[in-house]
Write a protein that binds this DNA or RNA. Structure first.
Lengths: 304, 304
DNA sequence: ATCAGTTACGCTTGGCGTAATGATC
DNA sequence: GATCATTACGCCAAGCGTAACTGAT
């Protein structure tokens, strides 16, 4: 019967399974997901197995762990669901705390200076107000805001001009563009490449440093097409910009970074990107519910 | 730690609890929800209790069963989550069935005739194609499409002109406007009220027939303000339009209905509504994923 | 007194961890 | 052989139903 929604839905797809699946997909490892969630590898394995049986399809290739097409589809839903669950929980457990604490989640290259001046100009920063800043990746920022661990997030990323940052949003978050600044390829000063600007395509064969915690990995850059498989890439997993620049200065590889942070750094020079046209964009992220509450801060930030 | 989404989320809010809670909120009864879901009243009671303990708040007033403010907030999230879960499941369990069967969920006053002619004109109705039509309410139609029990839904409702029908959508459904036609107050032919048209406000004290399965109850009409509590109202729970019109013709009460279905019916006349300005709107509802698959049908329906 | 939701209680099952097994590099 | 996922198994607890209980009409 079409109109009867309940019969036959007995199999309700456990949320623990979904959470474990999402964690495995995110980390690429059953072991890592298990420690993240406080489970045993065994438990996570059982969760994913249960989920796969429940939907009747394989969701993950093992060894290496990668999503199947079905897994990719499910993950999108799972992310939305888990995010909304976070929001629901944080909405309901909201202790009506007086607004003496503003928690801001930031990605490493987000414009924290703007935040500081915005707080000053709006006089939000009364003595009774505390600010906690913590480096998180984009997904972490979304999660932090959704779950109420942070009130707002300042996030950044490299995208085509005018495009919003790509986030898993379930229609619950509002984001406001703060800033778009030029990006450049960061090179050692003694690098042979000269000229006023450069095509990314001209550098496919170069050695790159991916710093996924600091900036989008090269493969995720908009307009980046494949490139030859197996070309060497160094990965730096930290969030320290100085370290990253030092690695570049010492010839370990190149990276795409906002020009601002490269300029004036010894041993490194920035070569503006000609194509594809990219910008380093910053956004402020707030729960839709909370937009009004943070209106003044948002406006001050947007005003610059 | 802000950036670590996983620690402390141990309490994952069981989906069964959420489902039971939503069912209770929908039906207004623990007992009814239990039978709908195939549980015992006791189990549903435990589910809701567990959920309330989990969020630390009362979600439902009992006796009569009604949502608390916190419950209302949670229900919105729960509906979205359960809907998305339905979509996820139906996406993954999609048997790659050849398109020989088109299942259409319809609300009682939806323009099925248009569907028939659209099918003829697009020649979708080849011999190998079957059509199943079943009456469902708006929420049922959403659920039917989300879970894949129906491919498309034809839904109707009374709204202010130009406004979409209100549905719990998690950003997964696409709806297309088909039609807006005038609504009228249906009266017995011998009713004393005369004139070319009528204000709803002039009829607050009249006897009404609410037919929630057939049309929006009066209290849900846009622009309906409260009205005196306790005025008598008859309820007809069926979906049969002829019965409804017979009730009106026999003086049991008035109702707001699309003018089209009233005109020409013996014993009943339609008085156009002057204020508030309302229309009977029809929409076609499809999973966003499936819009392309059903493009021709949608276009044909919209063309009229 | 009846109806509806809650609480008590026992039983079953599901889900976890430990540990052994298997596969892949 | 090391690493990582799966399977086996036992144990505990979560969750269900039955049935007694409570309160409201």
């Amino acid at each position: 019967m079409i109109g009867d929604p309940e019969i036959g839905n007995a199999d309700v797809m456990d949320l623990r399974d979904l959470r474990s699946f999402a964690a495995v997909a995110r980390t690429g490892s059953f072991t890592q997901a298990a420690t993240d969630l406080g489970y045993t590898q065994s438990a996570v394995s059982q969760h994913v197995a249960a989920l796969e049986q429940s939907v009747g399809q394989s969701l993950l290739h093992r060894r290496p762990v990668r999503l199947t097409p079905a897994g990719r589809r499910l993950l999108e839903h799972a992310d939305h669901i888990l995010l909304r669950l976070d929001v629901a929980r944080s909405e309901l457990t909201r202790v009506e705390q007086q607004p003496t604490r503003l928690v801001v989640a930031c990605t490493p290259l987000a414009p924290i200076a703007r935040l500081a001046s915005a707080l000053r100009s709006t006089r939000i920063a009364t003595p009774r107000l505390q600010i906690a800043v913590s480096s998180v990746d984009g997904a972490g920022a979304v999660s932090a805001v959704a779950s109420g661990r942070a009130d707002v997030a300042l996030i950044d990323g490299v995208v085509a001009p005018g495009n919003p940052l790509a986030l898993t949003d379930a229609g619950l978050l509002a984001s406001f563009s703060l800033d778009e600044e030029p990006v450049a390829v960061a090179l050692p000063t003694d690098h042979p490449l000269r000229g006023a600007s450069v095509d990314l395509a001209a550098l496919v064969d170069a050695q790159w440093i991916d710093a996924p915690s600091l900036s989008a990995p090269r493969a995720d850059l908009p307009g980046w097409q494949g490139g030859p498989a197996g070309e060497p890439t160094i990965t730096y997993d930290g969030t320290d910009l100085a370290t990253m620049l030092a690695l570049i200065a010492n010839g370990h590889g190149l990276a795409v970074l906002p020009g601002r942070v490269v300029d004036g750094c010894p041993g490194v020079r920035a070569l503006p990107l000609r194509f594809p046209s990219l910008v380093h964009r910053s956004e402020i992220l707030v729960l839709k519910n909370a937009v009004d509450r943070h209106r003044r801060l948002i406006d001050a930030l947007r005003a610059g």
